[in-house]
C-alpha cells in the first residue's frame, strides 16, 4: 500500500514539475489541483457520462466474453469450425477497430448499441483465442485416461477440457477488461451524444482541458478497478491456479 502511495506522490510531483517547466499553461497541461477541482466541480456531469461509458464497457465485456467463450467451444467441438472460422476470426483482428467504428455507428446508430458492439468486438478475440488455446492444450495423458474410462466426448469437454482451460480463459478476460474501455471510447469519439469519450471531445473543443483530464482520470480509474475486480473474482473462482511469481522462491 505504501508503495502505491509513493508511486502516486512521485507521479503528481513529476506532473507539477512538467506543468511548471512548460510555462504554467493550463490549456496545455493543467496542474493536478486544477484537475482535482474540475473533478469535484463537474461531479454530476462526470457521473452521468461515466455511468453511460461504464454501462457500455460492462455490456461489451459481457457480450464479447460470452461470444468468445461460445466461439472457442464450437471451435473445440466441431472440426470444420476450427478449419473455416478460425482463420476468419484471425483476419478480423487485422482490421483496426478504429477503421470499422464509423461503419458500426452508421449501422447501429449514435446510441449505446454501436459502442457496446465496438467494445464486444475488441474483447471477443483475446477471450476466444486464450480459451481456445487452453481447450486445445489438455494433457494428452489425461485424455488417454478418460478414454480407458469410456468417457463420452461431451463429458471430456465438460469435466476435463473446460476446467483445464479456465486459467487461459482468465488471462483472456483480464486482457479483455483492460482493452474494453478503448472500444467504448473509440465508439463515442466517432459519433455519440453521451459518455466520457463524448465529454472529452466536447471539453477539448472548448479548451476545457482540466475537464478533459478529469474525464480521462475517471476512465482510467474505471478500467483499473474493473481489471482488479475481475482478477480478484478469478482468483476466488480458480483457487487451484497458483501464481508462482508470487511465491517467495520464485525469483531464485
Amino acid at each position: 500500500m505504501s508503495r502505491r502511495l509513493v508511486a502516486v506522490a512521485v507521479l503528481l510531483g513529476l506532473w507539477t514539475l512538467a506543468w511548471a517547466g512548460a510555462g504554467q499553461m493550463e490549456f496545455i497541461l493543467p496542474p493536478p489541483w486544477r484537475v482535482a477541482a474540475a473533478l469535484w466541480d463537474n461531479r454530476e456531469l462526470l457521473a452521468e457520462h461515466g455511468a453511460i461509458t461504464l454501462a457500455e464497457i460492462l455490456l461489451g465485456l459481457g457480450c464479447g466474453a460470452g461470444l468468445g467463450v461460445l466461439a472457442a467451444l464450437s471451435l473445440a467441438l466441431w472440426r470444420p469450425a476450427a478449419l473455416w472460422l478460425w482463420p476468419l476470426f484471425v483476419a478480423t483482428q487485422a482490421l483496426p477497430v478504429f477503421a470499422i467504428a464509423p461503419l458500426l455507428v452508421l449501422w447501429l446508430g449514435y446510441g449505446m448499441a454501436s459502442k457496446v458492439a465496438m467494445a464486444a468486438l475488441i474483447i471477443f478475440f483475446p477471450v476466444a483465442s486464450a480459451f481456445y488455446d487452453g481447450l486445445r492444450r489438455t494433457d494428452p495423458d489425461l485424455l488417454d485416461l478418460a478414454r480407458t474410462m469410456n468417457a463420452p466426448p461431451l463429458a471430456v469437454l465438460r469435466h476435463l477440457r473446460v476446467p483445464a482451460a479456465l486459467p487461459g480463459l482468465a488471462s483472456g478476460l483480464k486482457v479483455g477488461a483492460a482493452v474494453a474501455p478503448i472500444g467504448a471510447v473509440v465508439g463515442e469519439w466517432v459519433g455519440s451524444s453521451a459518455g466520457l469519450g463524448f465529454l472529452m471531445l466536447h471539453a477539448n473543443a472548448r479548451l476545457q482541458v482540466p475537464l478533459m483530464f478529469a474525464a480521462l482520470f475517471l476512465l482510467a480509474a474505471m478500467a483499473i478497478l474493473l481489471h482488479a475486480a475481475i482478477a480478484a473474482g478469478l482468483r476466488r473462482a480458480l483457487p487451484w491456479v497458483h501464481d508462482t511469481l508470487d511465491q517467495p522462491h520464485a525469483r531464485d
Binding site: 480407458t148 479456465l166 487451484w240
Partner: peptide, 11 residues
C-alpha cells in the same frame, strides 16, 4: 489405466 503421472485434477 494408471499412468506415470498421477493425473489428479487440481480442481
Amino acid at each position: 489405466w494408471m499412468a506415470q503421472k498421477d493425473l489428479l485434477l487440481p480442481w
